[in-house]
């Protein structure tokens, strides 16, 4: 489903990064960063909740709005029962829509918010996501202190939280269109190789968006995928060429941008729901506001597996949602 919008804007954003991300090449673009992974809490899950709460409170401060002026909070994360988002919502007292689309949660949130604002049912919506390296390692992989070797195709979950205020009030960043993706199962069972799992879903969403909005890849200054990693990015380029006969020359992947992938120990790159919004809200929007980029297609990708589905040797489905941002300078 592709929608176009006339009056939906991203007014303000806040990004909070963990220590590893702050040391990366985009470190200076984040609003705040933590020096360790506990943030003064006793457990990582509590740390993630604190980070997300802190992120939304900083956004409310920045836009000088009270909680009761916000019509809805659309938030998601990776933890079971979305506890980071739900516990945050419990502290903030804003009507809550909890969503789960794995690492594509950020754009799914923006799509829901844009549709609500465009149709006039809501005025101000905060979209937020969070992920924490240690909570996801614990939930999806192995204990954090366990050092069993990982393959080069594995990814490193981003620690961070990002939130954005979406409203009909004019700003420099306009959301012009979006495409809600379909869940695609490409037959990959390897939970380490999430780039390969998600590339066909990203390709399908990009293709659908381009066809439905009657645009070509060259109409965009940048097509930014979520967290395919350095190998997944190459797979996507080849897949686009073979399946849809389309060249993606202006493609970049936030997994490869958030870390210095040659010098930081992150295997194929970053992953997690916070990956693409940290890069977009921190770095890309800054470039758009300075006029260096005009039209950006933000394509977040999510791998929809659980530990049980992997143990049951099921192939992994993936989903991808796209949102088009334009600078109104």
């Amino acid at each position: 489903m592709t929608n176009t919008y006339n009056n939906v804007y991203i007014n303000d954003t806040i990004t909070i990064a963990g220590p590893y991300e702050a040391k990366g090449p985009l470190g200076s673009y984040f609003d705040k960063s933590y020096k360790d992974l506990y943030f003064g809490e006793k457990a990582w899950e509590l740390a993630e909740i604190k980070m997300l709460t802190n992120c939304i409170e900083m956004l409310l401060d920045k836009i000088k709005m009270k909680n009761n002026k916000i019509d809805a909070l659309i938030s998601g994360d990776l933890l079971n029962q979305n506890i980071s988002s739900n516990f945050t919502a419990a502290k903030l007292g804003i009507p809550m829509i909890g969503i789960y689309a794995a690492c594509s949660t950020s754009t799914l949130g923006l799509i829901i918010a844009s549709n609500m604002i465009n149709s006039g049912v809501a005025k101000n919506i905060i979209c937020s996501v969070s992920s924490h390296n240690c909570t996801s390692e614990k939930q999806f992989r192995q204990p954090v202190e366990y050092g069993g070797p990982k393959p080069k195709r594995a990814t490193f979950t981003v620690t961070g939280a990002a939130s954005a205020l979406v409203s009909s009030k004019k700003s420099k960043i306009k959301i012009t269109s979006s495409t809600l993706g379909t869940v695609v199962d490409a037959g990959i069972k390897d939970a380490f190789h999430m780039g390969a799992v998600m590339a066909p879903a990203a390709a399908k969403t990009i293709y659908t968006h381009l066809i439905n909005t009657k645009t070509k890849p060259s109409d965009y200054d940048l097509i930014l995928t979520g967290d395919l990693g350095r190998y997944g990015k190459d797979i996507l380029k080849d897949y686009m060429k073979e399946e849809y006969n389309m060249e993606l020359n202006n493609l970049d992947d936030s997994a490869c941008m958030i870390y210095d992938i040659n010098n930081q120990e992150v295997y194929a790159g970053g992953s997690g729901p916070a990956c693409i919004p940290l890069v977009t809200y921190g770095y890309i929007l800054d470039k758009m506001k300075k006029g260096k980029l005009k039209k950006v297609l933000m394509v977040a990708t999510g791998s929809l597996h659980s530990q049980a589905s992997v143990n049951l040797k099921q192939t992994i489905p993936a989903v991808s949602h796209a949102i088009c941002l334009e600078a109104t300078l």
Binding site: K152, A186, G187, A196, Y231, I235, D238
Partner: peptide
């Protein structure tokens, strides 16, 4: 066919 494409890019 997709698995072959993936294998080509897998380190």
């Amino acid at each position: 066919k997709y698995q072959k494409l993936v294998d080509k890019h897998t380190p």
